[in-house]
Design a protein around this nucleic acid. Structure first.
Lengths: 206, 206
DNA sequence: CTTGTTAGCTACGGTTGCGTATCTTACGCT
DNA sequence: AGCGTAAGATACGCAACCGTAGCTAACAAG
């Protein structure tokens, strides 16, 4: 049991993980230097040497561990690619840093500076595209009407997926993701479902 | 300046408002008996006489002040009624109790019991329908294909509206609400926009 | 091996929230 | 007018976190 002492990167990584774990457990409101130090098995002194507040530690932790998930719109299968992108979104949301980012965004009202810092350091938060990437890809190929790809349409997949998670406290099952694509995104992109003869459109605008 | 002393309902109401204000300011994680008592201008003793924890106070506060917003699908104007229901959603989300409900739902992972208690006492949280009410109304009239009103479709309006708020830190403007209805909900409900001849549907399933 | 850096430890005074106890007194009711 | 309830004020010991200080010793680099 020789006293092994962590230094530099090794120590920093441990602290980062501790910060993310503390956030997951107690939320942004209960994040504390004491808690992070305790969980990382280090001394407060070592924390204050590098960071001035628990939020600073958290931002660094997010920046260091943030996954650079590229959504590939490779194939010729719009529907399949859309569903795949939603699965990527689920994978992303399982990552500790993703949950941290979400927690910070939720507290936007109470902590706008944190959100700003997040944008500066990590870029990309949430609106990491996913579905939008796929849709734009097919629009460039001319297989989707680009005029239909408005902000609202590009955000459908993420919005419905996240809302499901909030409402049910669990990830949406695969069928629900397919439902989103088939029943919402594709119709909005201009592909009407097979069996349907809509009634006389009431109240459609000019 | 005779020492006026609040009692019963009057005091309770003041405490409720204090609890909601504390939540808005510090988040669920920083809600404390001390804070509520301080803001309400009362003594901790008076709090502990009735409640055992700040969360209890909050639940009572939500239950007491929760708005019973009925969404009226009165007219013959589907589009107009949908947009109106989204405006009702915005009104609802401005109410202190709505923000409290959202804060509790966000911390679902950390505090499942709170969510359960919320369902027991307040019912109706979030999925308070809005758009769904309108769509179902027109479906009963036969003006909308009921088979298209799947869970995903019924949730579009709320999902996109809430996501906009989270992403931008502000309420969506009226044009965005119209965009949601015209470009997403109505197409999903079976009403294709006027000018469009979708390409050969790639990858549509059986 | 020497030396500089820095992790780890302990401890401090200060603040805040906890939950309880005690006492006074304003208020509402009869 | 008198009385019981409960609001208000104050204080307590306890615990957690804050930010800082002082010290020892492990590690890396020369």
């Amino acid at each position: 049991m020789g006293p092994t002492r962590r230094r530099g990167e090794e120590l920093i990584t441990a602290i980062h993980q501790a910060a993310l774990a503390e956030l997951a457990e107690g939320g942004l409101g209960r994040l504390s230097m004491e808690g992070i130090a305790r969980r990382a098995g280090t001394a407060k002194t070592s924390l204050y040497r590098r960071w001035a507040s628990p939020e600073e530690v958290l931002l660094d932790a997010i920046g260091a561990a943030y996954p650079a998930d590229r959504v590939g719109a490779s194939g010729d299968d719009l529907r399949g690619d859309l569903i795949a992108s939603l699965h990527r979104l689920l994978e992303w949301s399982r990552h500790p840093t993703a949950q941290a980012v979400q927690a910070i965004l939720m507290e936007r009202t109470r902590n706008p500076e944190l959100v700003a810092a997040l944008y500066e350091r990590v870029f990309d938060p949430a609106g990491g595209r996913f579905c939008a990437t796929v849709l734009r890809h097919y629009a460039e190929r001319g297989e989707v009407d680009a005029r239909r790809l408005t902000p609202a349409v590009l955000d459908i997949g993420e919005a419905l997926t996240m809302k499901y998670a909030v409402d049910h406290g669990a990830e949406p099952p695969r069928e629900y993701l397919e439902s989103i694509v088939d029943e919402v995104i594709l119709p909005a992109a201009g592909f009407s479902p097979p069996a349907s003869s809509p009634a006389t459109g009431p109240g459609r605008p000019s």
